[in-house]
Design a protein around this nucleic acid. Structure first.
Length: 454
RNA sequence: GGCGACGUGGCCGAAUGGUUAGGCAGCGGCCUGCAAAGCCGUCCAACCGGGUUCGAUUCCCGGCGUCGCCUCCA
């Protein structure tokens, strides 16, 4: 049973399942106005880890993650570049999936697009107006947050405190709103903008209405877990919830929020701060698995620095796990079951609010003992530990590399190196090895012969 | 101003009221023709000041500092 910190109650508590054996999960997905960045990577990797872990314990996960394909930023960019907004969203959604695939992130079971649910949003807004929880103004339709008794559940702040905050911030739409905290459910169309019809006038939905409609449409009321970055707590999640509550509908039973990616100086990574890096850059220049491992070695509620140093360290750690997998395979390990005690310990750590760092420490320890078993020729022990390492890594989505494809000419050089060694012609052997290394191969010379890999 | 998170060894980063996190890097050794890989060993630690306690990195108070949210944002 997974125990998970719940933002609403501020406690670690068991993740209850509405339908026994199936976890209903809603992950707030990207607004596709630009290429995915490093922060999106943490989000998707984190929930992919969660999903895979739950599945590894035998549960089914209904994993819904939306694509927000209508939003102010998309419209702004289309106008700025003189392009159709659909072109922008199609292009960036393609980049999104390209990055997800490269990182080994499983496709969600459902990926609703906001534009396919506008009818449901119009209906929801109508219901809110009927219940006097929303009102129509000149520029749009607004949600009246004062009608929601426990508004602020996720923020843990009183409405008045939220409003006085931020110093001299301008209140958007102040002239139309009844209360500064009210938020837009529907924005009436301006010339040249995409729009849908409604009985109050053509327009487009507000961001917060999109997610509440999609999550309820696909997962139903009282779904198990709603997730996202810490910045989504407020206003996004608070406002999603406010709409559901105002309609008398049961919403998420558990709220999970992960911390940000920070740069080397500890500042949040974002486009506006200029320390932004796209996920595609990372995936192209590093082993994408190393980002996953870096996150696994941290806690999801702590900020994590993602830069060449930290990802590089994870990459080298991963190389160690790969090496064990390769050595074990070369030693001829049998296909046996994982060590049940080790699996139990691993799950114990994971079930404690996803203590992935200590769970992975168990994996590294198993790999070390496995290497020692290979050295000692203890094939039985090596087999169990290799199976365990593969299984536990798989439970969090890490697939270990067994062997690289090696071209024939490289294999020939490796053979030549062995021949030179056998003849004790070490000058030639060193020269061949230098040539291989110059071509980027890692050369390992052992008693049983030379192996090369990338 | 409100709410919150956090300050751990050269770096990243966990748990924990008393006992080895783990990874990366370094050092010594074994192995090797020499390396590499692997194994064994090993150095380096808790922002500052009080308090509670037999004992605090861990709890409490006060500083100092960093970061996040307070209607763009993973």
């Amino acid at each position: 049973m997974l125990n998970l910190y719940d933002t609403a109650t501020r406690t670690v508590r068991p993740l209850a399942m509405r339908d026994l054996g199936t976890v209903s999960l809603y992950v707030c997905g990207p607004t596709v106005y630009g290429p995915p960045h490093i922060g999106h990577g943490r989000s998707t990797l984190m929930y992919d880890i969660l999903r895979r872990y739950l599945e590894s314990t035998g549960l089914t996960v209904r994993h819904v993650s939306n694509i927000t394909d209508i939003e102010d930023k998309i419209i702004e960019r289309a106008a700025r570049e003189g392009r159709e907004w659909q072109e922008i969203t199609a292009e960036n959604e393609a980049l999104w999936w390209q990055a997800m695939d490269a990182m080994g992130v499983l496709r969600p079971t459902d990926t609703p697009h906001a534009t396919d649910y506008v009818e449901g949003m119009v209906e929801l807004i109508g219901d809110l107006i009927d219940r006097d929880a929303a009102y129509v103004t000149d520029d749009g339709i607004y949600m009246s947050v004062k009608t929601v008794a426990d508004y602020g559940l996720l923020t843990h702040q009183r409405l008045e405190d939220m409003l006085t905050g931020g110093g001299d911030r301008e209140v958007f739409g102040a002239e139309n709103k009844r209360d500064p905290a009210d938020f837009a459910l529907w924005k009436f169309t301006k010339p040249g903008e995409p729009s849908w019809s409604s009985r109050w006038g053509d327009g487009r939905p507000g961001w917060h209405s999109e997610c509440v409609v999609m999550s309820l449409a696909l997962l139903g009321e009282h779904f198990d877990l709603h997730t996202g970055g810490q910045d989504l707590k407020f206003p996004h999640h608070e406002n999603e919830r406010a709409q559901a509550v105002a309609l008398g509908k049961g919403f998420a039973n558990h709220w999970m929020h992960h911390a940000f990616v920070v740069d080397a100086e500890g500042e949040k990574m974002s486009k506006s701060l200029g320390n932004f890096t796209t996920l595609l850059d990372l995936v192209d220049t590093m082993d994408p698995r190393s980002y996953r491992l870096l996150l696994l070695q941290s806690h999801y509620r702590s900020p994590v620095s993602v830069n060449a140093d930290t990802v590089g360290a994870a990459e080298r750690a991963l190389a160690g796990l790969d090496t064990f997998a390769r050595r074990a395979a070369a030693a001829g390990v049998a296909n046996v079951a994982a060590d049940p005690t080790l699996v139990a310990s691993f799950r114990d750590r994971m079930d404690d609010d996803l203590d992935t760092a200590n769970a992975m420490a168990l994996v590294f320890d198993a790999a070390r003992r496995g290497n020692a078993a290979v050295d000692d020729g203890d094939l039985a022990l090596a087999s169990v530990l290799a199976a365990s390492v593969h299984e536990l890594c798989g439970a969090v989505g890490l697939v270990l590399k067994l062997a690289d494809e090696v071209p024939a000419d490289v294999l020939a050089k490796a053979a030549a190196l062995d021949a030179a060694r056998a003849a004790k012609d070490f000058a030639t052997a060193d020269q061949v090895r230098a040539e291989l290394q110059a071509d980027g191969w890692l050369v390992e010379t052992t008693k049983s012969g030379t192996t090369v890999r990338r």
